[in-house]
C-alpha cells in the first residue's frame, strides 16, 4: 500500500509542481486554523477556570477537597460532599449499566438473528438521543415514586440492618439518580462494546467452536479476551458521561449536601450544585468555589477520557498486529 502511495506522490509531483497551488495552500491554512481553534478553546477554558478558582484555592488550599462544609452565608466552602455524590452516583450507575450493556453487546454481536441486529441496535442507540431533561422529568414523576413505593421499602424492610440499605426512603435520592444515569450511559457502553466484539475475527470464534465450545464458552474463550480493552474503554467513556451529567441528576438526586451511608438518601453532585447556585451568586469567594468545583469535575473527566482513549487505541493496534502476523 505504501509503495503505491509513494508512486502516486512521485507521479503527482512530476506532473504538477508543488509551487503555485494557491488553492491547496489556502485550504491547508484554513483547515489548520479550524483545528487550532479547538486547542485554543481548551487552553482558554482551563486557564479561565484556574484563574476564576484562584481565590478559593488560595483561601482553602487542599482543605477544599476534604472539608464537607458548604456554607455561602459564612463563606466557607468544601467540596467533599459533592465529590462523594458525583463519584458514588456514577459508580452505582456503572454497577447497574455494565452487566446490562455487556449482555446487550454480546447478544447483538454474537447471538441476535441478522434481521434483528440493526433495529435493536438502533433502539438502544436511540436512548442516547433522549434529552436529559426528559429523563429528569420521567425520573421525578415516574421512577422516583415507583422506587420509593416498591423497591426501596423492600430493601429497607428486609436489609435495613445493612447501613447502605437503611431508610428512610424518599424515592428521590442517590439510588434513583443512579438508575437514571445507568439508563443514560447504557447506549454508550453497549454500542462501543458491541463494536469491539464485532471486531473479533471469525477465525478466533471458529478456533473455540472446533474444540467443542458451546456458544457461551466461545464468547468467554475467544470474544471477551480480545474485546476486553474496547470494553474497558467503553466503560470509562460511560463513567465520564455519568460524572458530568447535570440536568437529570439535579432533578432527581435530592440536592441535599450530606454524606450518608444509605444509597436511598438524597445527595448532591458537583454538576448539580453548580447548576443550582450559579444564578444567585454575584462574585467573591462563593463564585471562586463554584469555579473550582468545575475545575475538579473537568480534571476528573479529562483524565478518564484520556485513559479511555489510550485503552481504545491499544485495541486497535492489537487487532492490526494480529492481522499482519
Amino acid at each position: 500500500m505504501s509503495s503505491i502511495n509513494n508512486l502516486r506522490d512521485k507521479f503527482r509531483d512530476a506532473s504538477r509542481p508543488a509551487r503555485g497551488r494557491l488553492g491547496d495552500t489556502l485550504f491547508t491554512v484554513i483547515a489548520f486554523l479550524a483545528a487550532a481553534t479547538i486547542i485554543l478553546i481548551i487552553t482558554l477554558l482551563v486557564y479561565q477556570l484556574f484563574e476564576g478558582a484562584l481565590p478559593s484555592i488560595r483561601a482553602f488550599g487542599a482543605d477544599f477537597l476534604s472539608s464537607s462544609e458548604w456554607d455561602p452565608v459564612k463563606d466557607i466552602y468544601g467540596a467533599r460532599v459533592f465529590i462523594y455524590g458525583t463519584i458514588v452516583s456514577s459508580l452505582l450507575a456503572l454497577l447497574m449499566a455494565v452487566p446490562l450493556s455487556l449482555g446487550i453487546a454480546i447478544y447483538l454481536s454474537q447471538f441476535a438473528p441478522r434481521w434483528l441486529r440493526s433495529p435493536l441496535g438502533f433502539i438502544v442507540e436511540l436512548l442516547a438521543a433522549i434529552p436529559s431533561v426528559v429523563y429528569g422529568l420521567w425520573g421525578i414523576f415516574v421512577l422516583a415514586p415507583f422506587l420509593g413505593q416498591t423497591i426501596e421499602p423492600f430493601f429497607a424492610d428486609h436489609l435495613g440492618g445493612i447501613p447502605i440499605f437503611a431508610g428512610p426512603v424518599y424515592g428521590v435520592g442517590l439510588f434513583a439518580a443512579a438508575v437514571v444515569l445507568a439508563i443514560m450511559i447504557l447506549p454508550t457502553i453497549s454500542a462501543i462494546s458491541r463494536e469491539s466484539m464485532l471486531n473479533v475475527s471469525s477465525d478466533q470464534k471458529e478456533a473455540a467452536q472446533a474444540l467443542g465450545a458451546t456458544p457461551w464458552e466461545t464468547v468467554r474463550m475467544s470474544v471477551l479476551p480480545l474485546a476486553r480493552p474496547g470494553i474497558i474503554g467503553a466503560i470509562i467513556l460511560g463513567l465520564g458521561r455519568a460524572l458530568g451529567e447535570t440536568m437529570a441528576v439535579t432533578m432527581i438526586i435530592g440536592n441535599r449536601p450530606e454524606i450518608s451511608a444509605s444509597i436511598f438518601a438524597p445527595a448532591y453532585t458537583i454538576a448539580s450544585v453548580i447548576a443550582n447556585e450559579f444564578a444567585e451568586v454575584t462574585a467573591g469567594l462563593h463564585m471562586a468555589a463554584l469555579v473550582e468545583l468545575a475545575l475538579i469535575l473537568l480534571v476528573i473527566t479529562l483524565l478518564l477520557n484520556l485513559l479511555a482513549r489510550l485503552l481504545v487505541q491499544r485495541t486497535g493496534s492489537g487487532a492490526l498486529k494480529r492481522k499482519r502476523s
Binding site: 475475527s201 477465525d203 478466533q204 471458529e206 478456533a207 473455540a208 472446533a210 474444540l211 474463550m221 475467544s222 479476551p225 480480545l226 494480529r322
Partner: peptide, 13 residues
C-alpha cells in the same frame, strides 16, 4: 478436530 487455513491460536492465551 480441525486445523484452519489461517493459523488461529488464541493470541493472548
Amino acid at each position: 478436530g480441525m486445523v484452519f487455513q489461517r493459523p488461529n491460536p488464541f493470541p493472548l492465551m
